[in-house]
Write a protein that binds this DNA or RNA. Sequence first.
DNA 1: TCAAGTTGTCTATTATCATAGACAACTTGA
DNA 2: TCAAGTTGTCTATGATAATAGACAACTTGA
Lengths: 241, 241
Amino acid sequence: MSLQESSGVALWRQVADGIERGIADGRFAAGEKLPGEIEIADTYRVNRHTVRRALAALAERGLVRAERGSGTYVEAQRLAYPLRSRTRFSEIVGAGGREPRGQLIDASEEPATRELARELGLKTGAPLVRIESVRLADRTPICVSTNWLSADRFPGAGAVFANARSMTKLLAHYGVRDYRRASTRVTATIVDASDAARLDLALGRPVLVVDSTDVATDGKPLVTKRARFAAERVEFLVENS
Amino acid sequence: MSLQESSGVALWRQVADGIERGIADGRFAAGEKLPGEIEIADTYRVNRHTVRRALAALAERGLVRAERGSGTYVEAQRLAYPLRSRTRFSEIVGAGGREPRGQLIDASEEPATRELARELGLKTGAPLVRIESVRLADRTPICVSTNWLSADRFPGAGAVFANARSMTKLLAHYGVRDYRRASTRVTATIVDASDAARLDLALGRPVLVVDSTDVATDGKPLVTKRARFAAERVEFLVENS
DNA sequence: TCAAGTTGTCTATTATCATAGACAACTTGA
DNA sequence: TCAAGTTGTCTATGATAATAGACAACTTGA
């Protein structure tokens, strides 16, 4: 366990990241007791105060809980998220026995950029509705999503989404019975400040970025989106046909 | 552009991450000139010296190049990496017009944990060969991969891989003509210190973690692996059937 | 009950981060 | 040629990060 200095990441933060990795990949199971602060300090070769700061940060995020005189205990695990052709957030979360919720952050109109127009099969500059929403499982934010739809095909989509709080219901409102995922691209980056606030995520944490387009059963593009998932809260399952 | 203090991530690092996001998502195209240091400082509301440190970090990693008196210019882009049932690193890299390379880091024997045994259809404690390798495209490290194979089925696999430098060729050496990807799980985390060194990646950068198992045409598990990709250098394409 | 091991809190010191200002060195276009 | 705009380098100062040591408060098991 060797850490790196002057990388722009504070030592306590590197220790916190290391412990969190341990929780995420199962080296420290939920409910289990972490090594003592002195032992952690030894393994990472930092001062005990530095470890304390790392643990304090994890505790504030609810990943661990310190008990004076006894030890520090783990409490967490990830949501399994299949990347299927037929992907419904509410079904995935519900399948995990958790309560799905959606919340509108912002809706506005804007003209289509070249890339968005291509994805949606429209002309550059065509009017689009942009819907920003956050999706949660049991009060824990899972992802922030930016959705673009044709403003001609889905007039007043923002207001509809505000009530429906679900893309599936929004589409149903316009007569779309079924749809499927056409393309999906996945990468990762560091969360930006506004997403960090919406996801209740500390700065510097990684997010999985998913660009995708949903199409109707006849193949016509309906909505294209960019979703940012808190990487520490989900695990994507890719189906290989 | 609002940044966050006392998050364990230095301001200069947050600015560097922001600019890098801009490069990754195309706001700043390759070859293009970035805004001036003073302008960047204004948008992020930090001191010009802080911006200079951010740019210096990006320059050291080869993402930008500063020209005195003129400006700072972008130089970079990502490798498109399809997550298919039939995935061959060398083919993917070759398709992008780049030269694929593999390099053995370490090979050793170890007993199967419960999880590894399940993936490979073996008994817990069965002897496994663990092969650590790094894969590059034109001298740029793309991913570090830890592979586990049955030591009974593939005796001396480490030595074979050291010569072949490719998992496809290793399997062919044991008579495996074809194989496919059975399962794939994707998530992201912050790079750890040893992977950072192997990937020539700064600490605190995100990596895409891919857990997968390859099986023979008859469905028998051959090798299970955990690969860590430098998120800034790749973009996964998920095929939706 | 008690010793060993744990987390919590305090003081103090040194190195790094971030800001601020000034000016040099260089490029570009009018 | 020259002015405006760019990156490069220097000094200086206050805030924060990290280390170090000591001891209090509490839990656990012998």
